[in-house]
């Protein structure tokens, strides 16, 4: 199990979702991915994407104009 990061700053939805989707394909079950975003739409879209694909949302945090969304890869 390992932790990964993905930079999606300045990308507008659905690009952060697409990048997350493609990155998660390379990860193993139980890994976590922290996606760093600026588009507020990601706060809805990445969790929605995670739910329909069976991944879980660990946290969403706003800090210094950035949004950090952590998902754990499901089976």
């Amino acid at each position: 199990m390992s932790d990964h990061q993905l930079d999606c700053q300045r990308l507008l939805c659905p690009l952060p979702v697409i990048r997350t989707q493609n990155k998660v394909k390379e990860l193993a079950v139980g890994d976590t991915l922290c996606v760093v975003c600026t588009d507020p739409g990601t706060k809805n879209d990445i969790p929605a994407w995670a739910r329909i694909h069976g991944h879980s949302l660990v946290s969403i945090e706003d800090k210094d104009d950035l949004i950090y969304i952590v998902v754990r890869v499901g089976a």
């Binding site: 659905p14 979702v17 697409i18 989707q21 809805n44 879209d45």
Partner: peptide, 21 residues
């Protein structure tokens, strides 16, 4: 609500959605 309609529809339907660039 800032939602992606395609994702939202997929969730209503209970299906997976693949978004392709």
């Amino acid at each position: 609500e800032k939602r992606n309609n395609a994702l939202w529809v997929a969730e209503q339907l209970g299906i997976k959605l693949h978004i392709v660039d």
